[in-house]
């Protein structure tokens, strides 16, 4: 069993805007692309050109519908590690391979000590960890730990690959432990919420809910289609108006 730090200096995480995400998969493939050559390398694929292609991804996007009929809504939901404050995936780890970093709260797996027992993926209620069948160890979102502090990068590129790629600007990265940070303020403004708070793992990542839709939620009933169109004399009225306007 592995211990958690009592506190972390920062709570780095993502804020994901479900109102804006169009489900384009940019965050998923850019994540796969960065991480298959980065800290998590390799992210292997099995049977990539065959009958059952599957591989290790650190971020996946799901689309689903909420509600029935005209008031239903389609939501795109990107899913990755939430870097919980009290993650069971770390505490169940029998080797200490899973750990939460003291300095920034990022939850990582040490591939050198991971034995691939998969206890952590059973413990995570979010399905955020993926076993890499080619590499034999557990993989998960690293918040691009090898990008965000990377001194060989331009400062504006020291962000996770998914945030840099996101074309709609639906993903935000920052310190959710600092109430004055841009991400914390966004969460406050938009009513950001925790995923499955009832489990008590205190996710650091937050989701911004879809905004209230405006208009057309089925409130206008079909008219009696026999209604006589009210266009008699409309042309004359229009031309009289035009005449007045042009005079």
């Amino acid at each position: 069993m592995t211990a958690l730090p009592e506190t972390t200096a920062k709570k780095l995480g993502l804020v994901i805007d479900l109102d804006t995400c169009v489900g384009c998969q940019a965050c998923a493939t850019s994540c796969k692309e960065w991480n298959t050559g980065g800290y998590s390398a390799p992210l292997t694929d099995q049977d990539p050109y065959g009958a059952d292609p599957h591989g290790a991804w650190l971020n996946r996007v799901h689309g689903f519908e909420v509600g029935d009929g005209p008031s239903s809504q389609t939501v795109h939901f990107p899913r990755s590690c939430l870097h919980c404050e009290t993650p069971a995936c770390v505490t169940v780890c029998p080797t200490g391979a899973s750990y939460k970093r003291v300095e920034d709260g990022i939850v990582l797996v040490n591939p050198d000590t991971c034995i691939g027992c998969k206890l952590c993926s059973w413990a995570c209620p979010y399905g955020a960890r993926e076993y890499d069948y080619g590499h034999g160890v557990m993989k998960k979102c690293t918040l691009c730990v090898d990008r965000i502090y990377n001194e060989t990068f331009a400062p504006e590129d020291r962000i996770p690959a998914c945030v840099r790629a996101c074309p709609t600007g639906a993903r935000h990265f920052g310190d959710l432990g600092d109430p004055d940070s841009a991400v914390s303020q966004l969460v406050a403004e938009r009513g950001g919420f925790d995923l499955l708070p009832e489990f008590g793992y205190k996710p650091v990542n937050k989701y911004l809910p879809p905004r209230q839709r405006r208009g057309g939620q089925g409130e206008e009933q079909a008219s009696t289609v026999d209604a006589t169109p009210a266009s008699g004399g409309a042309a004359e009225r229009l031309f009289a108006w035009v005449d007045r306007m042009l005079s």
Binding site: N110, D146, N150, T152
Partner: peptide, 17 residues
């Protein structure tokens, strides 16, 4: 309990290219 003080050193500034 295994301690989180065993955080491994990881390379944070590998050039991407």
């Amino acid at each position: 309990m295994l301690s989180s003080s065993s955080e491994p050193a990881i390379p944070l500034s590998e050039p991407s290219a």
